[in-house]
Design a protein around this nucleic acid. Structure first.
Length: 554
RNA sequence: CGGGGCGUGGCGCAGCCUGGUUAGCGCGUUGGUCUGGGGGACCAAAGGUCGCGAGUUCGAAUCUCGCCGCCCCGACCA
């Protein structure tokens, strides 16, 4: 097809909006792909919507390819469905009422609605089922940010699988997982599957797809050799080995006046910082004071602590610490502490310096299992310099965007909503479910984050480009430009024919900005030899081609 | 929700501290002339409740208070 720029609403800007920071945010606005309506609320302009739709189509083809059936469920949802699963308390939900006072919510995902429909499934003979739709999600986000990176309203492709047993559910899960890899591949976005945080729930099977990006809210940790990838919130890096002093037969108290941090302690004693331990008392939501113990050179990962304790917690107050330990922060340690101690795995072997629970004193030679009995868990934040837990290779850290998420949740929704089936033996069982989400808008933003330069988007992958070719028409070359456009269009290419009455420089700048994979220029030179210049946006390679060859060559 | 910042023609900004003629500048827009392969030049023009509301004052874009909106950091994130 051929679109004429002179007739499009294509408001490109020379300067990025003052409040934009993320590259994708700046370029999407400058290139006339999107415009902001309010915080976290965006309109896709025609150019942006074309990209969105192309991404949708790829997702649709891959979902259909694994036997998924496309639905369309409503946004406005009776609150009773959400009360049935207990999710009506989620703070991100928008609530509203109709004129008679009936209450509704705007869904953040559609598990309830699809499980509601799954109640029509009566027999094991109707299973498995895999359903999906593209539908608007609304979320009362505490802080939308970064243009399209985190928004309050967006379209998501969400799919729901319904199976009779775990074995079957696992097959459904694997199908979706494989489809996701194909989707990101086809969209030209680099995305890595990582095991995601299971949080307090635990036991659930969940993977994120993270796209490395200049801006984002996740940190992707990967092994340089490609055999390990995880979100930093759960990644298990292997830290360097500490230089431990000669072991002692029993802990030995040393006076450490005025030493309040591990750094000061290591300096004072002349030991390796990694040979000290850091005591971080936390108070759980149910009021217990738990001593979290990590190596002196590490930072406590709050997400890992949450997973380990299976309950929320906060740093204990000075008063709570004094009451529990009889000492103040800076001199705390596990030895002699009556409460729970949860220690990082790095402290399992060896002797470390720890607080003595006596102000101004520490203990040398403290050994887990001998001097205190902790529960062990992975509690440390991985850091640059850690080694791969699989192979010992170097780990790299990259900020990333979560572009997809797959989740197996068993009967979590079907039990609340009463979605059951009868098996061969006539026994009623809960249907087992999983959900699979992709945000096309985030994919779109991720592609730009991964493909841009000083001039603009460099370039859209062929598969999702708003147009395949940006045809720059210079004065006098209208006729040959039309022929070139026809040739490209006949070959199945989408053509943006830039027939605006603008300077050459502006058209070239806009072409670079918008980032179609190739730029075709018809100008004065074309009038002499009937050829046009074809330039590849990604690498700047340029060649002159006969109009007749265009369809074949490009 | 805590911290920081911003709000002035379509876009990007100055003016505010130290109140005082018709509120400026660049880009863009409209008309015109010349131009024409990397955001060209010149001429003319249109376009602004200075976020909203109170207050102080003879007088408020400017000072005070309140509210709203937007951005960034943090908390949070099914």
């Amino acid at each position: 097809m051929i679109a004429r720029a002179s007739q499009l609403f294509l408001p490109t800007l020379r300067e990025p909006p003052a409040d934009a920071e993320a590259a994708s945010h700046k370029l999407l606005v400058r290139g006339g792909f999107v415009r902001q309506v309010g915080t976290g609320l965006w309109t896709y302009l025609p150019l942006g919507w074309r990209v969105h739709r192309k991404i949708e189509q790829i997702v649709r083809e891959e979902m259909d390819g694994i036997g998924a059936q496309e639905f369309l469920a409503p946004v406005l949802t009776p609150v009773e469905l959400w009360e049935a699963t207990g999710r009506d308390k989620i703070p991100e939900l928008f609530h509203l009422s109709d004129r008679t006072g009936r209450r509704f919510i705007l869904p953040i995902t559609h598990e309830e609605t699809f499980t509601f429909h799954a109640r029509e499934i009566r027999s094991y003979k109707e299973l498995p089922q895999l359903w999906y739709h593209f539908q608007t999600k609304d979320r009362d986000e505490p802080r939308p940010r970064g243009g399209l990176l985190r928004v309050r309203e967006f379209i998501m492709k969400d799919a729901y699988s319904f199976d009779r047993d775990e074995e079957s559910a696992f097959v459904s899960f694997e199908k979706n997982r494989a489809a996701y890899h194909r989707i990101f591949e086809r969209c030209g976005v680099e995305a890595h599957e990582v095991r995601a945080e299971s949080g307090i729930m635990g036991g659930e099977l969940t993977f994120d797809f993270l796209a490395p990006s200049g801006s984002g809210e996740n940190t992707l940790v990967r092994c340089e050799r490609g055999d390990y990838a995880a979100d930093a919130e759960i990644a298990q890096g292997v830290p360097r080995a500490p230089e431990l002093p000669a072991p002692l037969a029993a802990p030995e108290e040393v006076e450490t006046p005025g030493v309040a941090t591990c750094e000061a302690l290591a300096t004072f004693l002349g030991t390796d910082l990694a040979a000290t331990s850091k005591a971080m008392p936390v108070t759980t939501d149910d009021g217990r004071v738990v001593l979290a113990l990590i190596r002196g050179d590490d930072r406590l990962s709050e997400s890992k602590l949450l997973s380990a304790l299976k309950i929320g917690s906060r740093a204990s107050t000075d008063d709570e610490i004094r009451a529990a330990f009889g000492a103040s922060g800076g001199s705390l340690g596990p030895v002699g502490y009556e409460g729970e101690v949860i220690a990082d795995l790095t402290l399992r072997e060896g002797q470390f310096v720890a607080g003595a629970n006596r102000d101004g004193f520490h203990l040398r030679g403290v050994e887990a299992g001998r001097d205190y009995e902790p529960e062990f868990a992975d509690l440390r934040e991985p850091v640059d310099g850690d080694r791969c837990p699989e192979c010992g290779g170097a780990l790299t850290f990259q900020t990333a965007i979560e572009v997809g998420h797959i989740f197996y949740f068993a009967d979590k929704y079907s039990s609340g909503l009463g979605a059951t089936f009868l098996d061969e033996n006539g026994r009623e069982k809960p249907i087992l479910g999983g959900s699979y989400g992709i945000g096309p808008g985030r994919v779109l933003a991720a592609v730009i984050e991964q493909n841009h330069d000083a001039d603009g988007i460099a370039a859209w992958p062929e598969s999702i480009a708003p147009y395949h070719a940006h045809l720059v028409v210079l004065p006098g070359a209208d006729e040959i430009a039309e022929q070139a456009a026809e040739a490209l269009s006949a070959a199945g290419r989408d053509v943006l024919l830039d027939d605006r009455d603008q300077r050459a420089g502006e058209k070239f700048a806009d072409a670079d900005l918008i980032g179609c994979p190739i730029r075709v220029t018809a100008g004065k030179k074309s009038l002499e030899d009937g050829k046009v210049d074809v330039r590849t946006r990604a690498d700047g390679a340029e060649k002159r081609l006969d109009v007749a060859e265009l369809g074949k060559e490009v």
